[in-house]
Design a protein around this nucleic acid. Sequence first.
DNA 1: GGGCGGGTCAGCCGATCGGATGACCCGCCC
DNA 2: GGGCGGGTCATCCGATCGGCTGACCCGCCC
Lengths: 212, 212
Amino acid sequence: MTAPDPVRILVCDDHIVVRAGLLALLDSAPGIEVVGEAGTGEEALALAAKLTPDVVLMDLQLGEGIDGVETTRRLTAAPGTTPHVLVLTTYDTDADITRAIEAGATGYLLKAERPEELFAAIHAAAQGRTALSGPVASRVMANMRSPRPSLTDRERDILAQLARGLGNREIARALFISEATVKTHLRRIYDKLGVDTRAGAVAVAKEQRLLP
Amino acid sequence: MTAPDPVRILVCDDHIVVRAGLLALLDSAPGIEVVGEAGTGEEALALAAKLTPDVVLMDLQLGEGIDGVETTRRLTAAPGTTPHVLVLTTYDTDADITRAIEAGATGYLLKAERPEELFAAIHAAAQGRTALSGPVASRVMANMRSPRPSLTDRERDILAQLARGLGNREIARALFISEATVKTHLRRIYDKLGVDTRAGAVAVAKEQRLLP
DNA sequence: GGGCGGGTCAGCCGATCGGATGACCCGCCC
DNA sequence: GGGCGGGTCATCCGATCGGCTGACCCGCCC
């Protein structure tokens, strides 16, 4: 019998140890071939264009340069045949998951995942099928049941200044708006995040990775 | 010529991918033998007692159970022959480094480190010599030049309540102290963190991983 | 052409915060 | 036995915040 073509993988992670781990794990997996590895988003884009992998295993946190989300966006938005991006990262934060999916990721796995799950997810991703880690899937479902209101761009602007410890007047000046407007935005931010103080808002924002 | 005894390693990391990566990397390294792997701090303690490794490669972030710092503390505080703990983690935050060293870690490496550095650090650790990643060493030096005042236990208590968005009166009640005392602590926290608002304090605290 | 989400602005007011200053107690170490 | 760090408490006051209510504009979509 003829073996089917293996799934061709490009690995993108800034940690050498993790890349080595993936290479070691995937080498032993049937029907999977690692064709390249990248340590930055820029490298991944260049290699993907040259190697045309079926699937890109992508970490969201990439030390320097563009991050995993942006890399994913560019990979999936490129003209011609685009790879399926399977996000493999450490955190199962709502904001991260949402941003990755919006950027065009086909799946979202956690690094703590068992190897068999990883292999299955890769094969699923190769066919364009969605694959989510257990905890991630749960979180997505929970979000659909009680949708977390997402902050608007402007609200994130306010939040960013807030996290710098600025007062309302200072935030107003920094963003060229009136203090009244700042307070209005803050009110809505409090509502959305379920808090009622600035300190609480910053805590939740950092927790949910809503800030750079 | 007789080969020297290899350095016996115990790997502790909650991410299977990372453990696989370390195993793969270390397998190819001369004079290093991985004798066991653990996914939690509890496992690491049990295995270390049984296997008496020369060096424990320890991640600081360990999903469930006790964290890497506490595991390190118990490993190095145990009676009898204790392994040298070499921390291998993702972040080079001041607080993490300090806590790890205080807990008895022999070295502190980043996962992005090159394999040769890793090997060298392991051999150094086996002999009880300190090994630090470049960025970590720089940070330690910088801290010695301009020492970052560390928060006291009580100040961390206050900070934790602050991050919950509590007001001074609520913090006072939560900790069974007077509001005046809360304000005194806050004042010192602001001074130490270099901020002058509660929102700023929470932001810095989260940034520096001073809070759980 | 009306509804709606997002952004902007206003005034009012009580509650809270942040700044400054000074004080007491306790455990520890030289 | 004195100094010192850490924790506790107090008073005073101006500045700021948070809650409330209401409003206008614009772009978009049905």
